[in-house]
Amino acid sequence: MTNAIEIRGLCHSFGTRPIHRSLDLDVGRGRIVGLLGKNGVGKTTLMNILMGFLRPQAGQCTIMGEPSHHLSPHTKRRIGLLFEGHLAYDFMTITQIERFYARFYLDWNPARFFDLMERLGLPGSHRIRHMSEGQRSQVVLGLLFAQEPDLLLLDDYAMGLDAGYRRLFVDYLADFVRDKNRTVFMTSHVIEDMERIADDLVLLRAGGDVRHTTLKGFRDSFHCYSLPYDGQSLPVADSVIFNVERTAGGRCEIFTFASEQELVAALRRQGFSLDGLRRESMSLEDAFIGYTGRY
């Protein structure tokens, strides 16, 4: 089995609003994949389906070769889930929660957990419900790593975390994942973290549009050009021009996967002057916004 996750023909809608249309997606073992998209395009829906809490209306979703909403206990043991909001049994203390989870995982590595707890600096009798979100995220991270999973599904790991905790999380995750070639599938609104850690990106747009690409490939192929904007008309998206956004300072940004020559030809076809056309450098966040569009 080379793929940790395989999705075939996934369809799901809420009422009459389609979220996923015949989605096909493979996540190879050892890859770190970031799922990106604006609010409401289906990231949470896809994560819920992958985590096995939502049954899709059509299609198949397999995790380690098993249907995602019918995982065997053996397979569940190999999967680490991080839920949005860093959910944990908040009625337990630090010591209790480690003792509880240790009973379920044969490869339980307490050193990973207690290493992080040492950094936390709280006594073992400290109850989780009395912790801040950041402190709780550290506990959840410790439990996740101690489990030694082969696959990690992380749903918005950055939610509620300040920059310090986020950086700690990403650094730990990067080291943990490289060791033993683990697979990660994660969502986040913090795009710069993806830049630090992700191998691949899955970009979702409204209506079920999906693009699965490597991070490098996306950065290399998706470009941004800017053009003066006279307030009258903007270039229109077509087979060459992917997206156009107005910016401050009397310019518009044109996003494309095509070469500069092809873009120039497309702009000419649409009757636009090329005066002032220039290529812009983009961070991953800029590219993401350019790809998904601003509100």
């Binding site: 096995g52 206990p73 053996h74 569940k76 889930l81 839920f83 944990a88 908040d90 379920f104």
Partner: peptide, 13 residues
């Protein structure tokens, strides 16, 4: 707050 997912994901039926 959906904490039931913690129990549903435990490696038991």
């Amino acid at each position: 707050d959906k904490r039931l997912r913690l129990t549903l994901h435990l490696p038991v039926r």
